[in-house]
Nucleic acid binder design. Structure first.
Lengths: 333, 333
DNA sequence: TTGAAAGCGCTAACAA
DNA sequence: TTGTTAGCGCTTTCAA
């Protein structure tokens, strides 16, 4: 059998309680601590997770909840990046805080939703990180009120013990617009994200503000985030005004769509028309020309979410956070 | 406080042991069972996960391990699909088997690798599902020998208590070739996956066998799975023989690359040249023309992996599994 | 600073 | 078929 705390105690010549104290940072004499550490090393002792949870009341588990209809799931690289960020913050300090494990809770149908209700038990997880930034997601309301939640994205209905980690969309939108202004564009257009996406609206608003009178209101169209959205929007814009010399897009995918249309129309990018994307997805660096775009620190959002949860559980005061975006200048603008 | 098994027992007028028995499927009278169920419903009782693990020796957790260098992670939709498949099999039967939760273990650097060693403790997880089908992955060797493992993909070094769930690559390769044969192609070519990928090799081998003498050995080139690989390979093939009238690709991404080259060269698909992809990724249905390709049941691989683990833990005899691929005929061939 | 002891909520062996 | 009881391995009072 694996060594228990009792074995360690015996070997170190102290009581079980003392071993527990060095494990959890209680008051112990230097001498005892050393002998316990030696005993731990010698026995290869590792705390029994369930026993610790049962006695201590902490599970050492965070739940990462992704509620997304089948299909959408993981098409979007965002989830993977968020998970990476979270995972990077889960390693425990040597003998202070134990490692936290991440319980992945996927909700794609009713059955999984009911299972999630059972899994999201305060005795089974210490906290929840919500990865799906859905508006009106019923999941939030059904989580046990005593469970702390960090939302990666926006929070529409307030909830106790709930914090959100978001991206500064307005700042990102403004940065792109300002870059265009510096380049001296005369006739800019905007391809905004879908009207249902709050972040998209905030970006557009900031772009409008920044561009001011230079922007012809007719040259703002909304489209879905996919490349196809960019294609359609760009075609429409070109009809409305063939003289457009710059386009701010709501996503990199829209930007490639717009790029394609522009190229097909015989225009050159960025000479005839400058294009700015949004997201700084991986492929943005390899389009031709490479996309100037706005970087969103998605992985960092996940990391901050995990740290926020940890801080709260440590008893610290925590608050909502907004992470900065940054302009990445490549060749398209 | 949440109700405990003791509360349920009291309300049902039975002993704690009896409640435990109805929860775990022991011998109980019909009458007791009913009263216990009623009491559970009334109290809203839910078993304490850690307590159960500690006493029962089963954690009710499977670990999904993805060991992949930073960057590759989740670029590939495969992981998401596998996780979906696994997740779909985790719901427990009402009062027979409890829900299993999925612990996501991401390994992208040394720190995470060490943490994984600690997380993959037989007392903390009941089994492991390995999602990264890496050859020579050191992780397999470092997993506690008492922990059962199911690998989604191929297994190179045998290990006790380890099973693999794979795709029938040979069958898929043959199916594509046979389809071409039926269409009466005269001059087929093959763009194989990278030489380092075993599955790719197996597919190519099956294709060669099926095509027989019809295949000019010079018309087989290997390339990476990306679209760029398809582009380069197709260009090379066209140089070697401009008369090619069909191409079997190793991936859908390669197929779009090849498609692009073919279209640019003024050929029409499928009239001048037929193209068959592999994978049946989401976008394969929306290229123009839509791709005829080989479907791989990735989600099903995950599901089978989870079921295999569950069956083994139930004490059943389990074995390696190979899942069938299927030809999806669209317009490109 | 320490040991002793009382649980945490559950399963399983045992006797009835 | 049932109740009783002894743990599972740990944390946390409580005295000392």
């Amino acid at each position: 059998m694996k060594p228990t705390i009792e074995d360690v105690a015996a070997l170190a010549g102290v009581s079980r309680g003392t071993v527990s104290r060095v494990l959890n940072g209680g008051p112990v004499s230097r001498a005892s601590a050393e002998r316990v550490h030696a005993a731990i090393a010698e026995t290869g002792y590792r705390a029994h997770h369930s026993a610790r949870s049962l006695a201590g009341g902490r599970s050492g588990v965070y739940a990462a909840v992704i509620s997304e209809p089948y299909g959408e799931l993981f098409e979007d690289p965002t989830f993977g990046l968020l998970l990476r960020g979270i995972s990077s913050q889960l390693t425990g300090a040597v003998h202070t805080s134990p490692d936290v494990s991440l319980s992945l809770v996927l909700i794609t149908d009713e059955e999984e939703r009911r299972r999630a209700d059972r899994l999201l038990d305060p005795r089974r997880v210490d906290g929840v990180i919500l990865l799906s930034p859905h508006v009106h997601d019923p999941i939030l309301g059904s989580i046990d009120p005593s469970l702390p939640v960090v939302v990666c994205g926006e929070l529409d209905e307030p909830r106790d013990l709930t914090w959100s980690v978001t991206i500064d969309d307005a700042h990102g939108g403004a940065a792109g617009a300002r870059h265009l202004l510096q380049r001296g564009v005369r006739c800019p257009a905007i391809i905004g994200g879908p009207l249902a996406a709050r972040g998209a609206l905030r970006r557009v608003h900031a772009q409008q503000t920044e561009l001011g009178d230079l922007l012809d209101p007719a040259l703002l169209v909304h489209a879905n985030y996919a490349a196809s959205g960019g294609v359609e929007a760009m075609r429409e814009l070109l009809v409305r005004d063939p003289g457009i010399d710059a386009v701010l897009c709501g996503s990199d995918r829209q930007a490639v769509g717009a790029l394609q249309v522009l190229l097909e129309s015989g225009r050159s990018v960025p000479d005839d028309v400058a294009i700015v994307g949004f997201d700084d997805q991986r492929f943005a660096a390899t389009t031709s020309p490479p996309l100037t775009t706005i970087n969103q620190p998605i992985t960092e959002v996940g990391a901050v979410a995990a740290r926020t949860l940890a801080a709260h559980l440590r008893g610290e005061e925590v608050s909502d956070q907004t992470l900065p975006t940054s302009l990445v200048i490549r060749s398209s603008a």
